[in-house]
């Protein structure tokens, strides 16, 4: 565990792992129609390993629809999704999770009356004796791996054996995020992870995101919070009326928040996405 701990206390997150150039997720012509409503139209999207990409856009711009197609919550109308080098077609969120895509939803998928290890391992418990549904749980191993995951993400929870209902919103969100670290997922997707949180709790979640960046874990962050996105991400992909209208590299610091707002509202469109105008 010491190799993990060494960089945990560092507060300087600016030297995060640079994107390696290897593609982890690619969508080609991803399209979703709900009856006559074209919620998502020909989305071509690329995410590299180690990269943190924000998805922004107004309400109804297609952000959540896009995420739902990738995570198997819905099945797409048309288009391709290539994940980790293989074309994939997830039937349900479990398929996506098994493939290594971990999603942190805005509405938390946590069981309130269970403790932290129980929630981390919900649906994939570690057992020490296999006996079908009556397999015997390996509490010790789950506790140890939980502690490892919390250390890896830098999540601070006073007592992991306390039930989730006794925790603050921020702590709950951290537990949900810590799942990704526990299962060595290849891609983390967060849908508005701080929408319901206070200032201090938001900072806590943002620190975890920085830690993920440091460790080279790729992330798709759906967020309305401009400051947060500018602070945490390498790139912003803007959706408008079901189409991608901009792909902005913000690492150089040449793009301002106002520019991004212009793309979101439709005042500007990048030339290569002219058909979204």
């Amino acid at each position: 565990m010491s190799d993990v701990q060494t960089n945990l206390y560092s507060t300087d997150f600016s030297h995060g792992a640079a994107p390696s150039g290897e593609v982890i997720l690619e969508t080609r012509g991803l399209t979703k129609h709900y009856g006559g409503v074209h919620a998502l139209q020909d989305a071509n999207f690329i995410l590299h390993k180690g990269e943190h990409v924000a998805i922004m856009g107004d309400n109804g711009a297609g952000k959540s629809t896009f995420v739902r197609q990738i995570t198997g919550v819905e099945t797409r109308t048309r288009g391709e999704v290539v994940f980790d080098g293989r074309p994939v077609h997830f039937e349900n969120p479990m398929d996506a999770r098994d493939a290594g895509i971990e999603t942190v939803f805005q509405t938390l998928a946590l069981a309130d009356q269970l403790d932290v290890p129980d929630n981390l391992f919900l649906g994939r418990e570690l057992v020490k004796f296999k006996l079908g549904p009556f397999s015997i749980l390996d509490y010790k191993a789950m506790r140890e791996r939980t502690i490892g995951a919390l250390e890896k993400t830098g999540v601070k929870i006073p007592n992991i054996r306390g039930t989730i209902e006794r925790m603050s919103g921020g702590q709950r969100q951290c537990v949900a995020i810590a799942r990704t670290a526990t299962f060595h997922s290849k891609l983390t997707i967060m849908d508005e992870p701080t929408a319901a949180l206070g200032v201090q709790e938001t900072a806590q979640v943002e620190n975890i995101i920085r830690t993920l960046k440091e460790q080279g874990e790729p992330l798709i962050l759906v967020s309305h919070n401009m400051r947060q996105v500018m602070d945490l991400c390498d790139r912003i992909v803007v959706f408008r009326r079901g189409r991608i209208c901009a792909n902005l590299d913000i690492r150089a610091g040449e793009i301002s928040g106002e520019d991004v707002v212009a793309y979101i509202t439709g005042a500007k469109t990048q030339p290569e996405y002219a058909d979204a105008a």
Partner: peptide
């Protein structure tokens, strides 16, 4: 207390949607 059956029983009673989303 000590089997997967028990854990899933508590999880379903606690938050059925979460249990479903977790693959139970």
């Amino acid at each position: 207390k000590y089997t997967v059956y028990g854990k899933h029983t508590y999880a379903i009673g606690s938050n059925e949607d979460a249990a479903r989303m977790s693959g139970i």
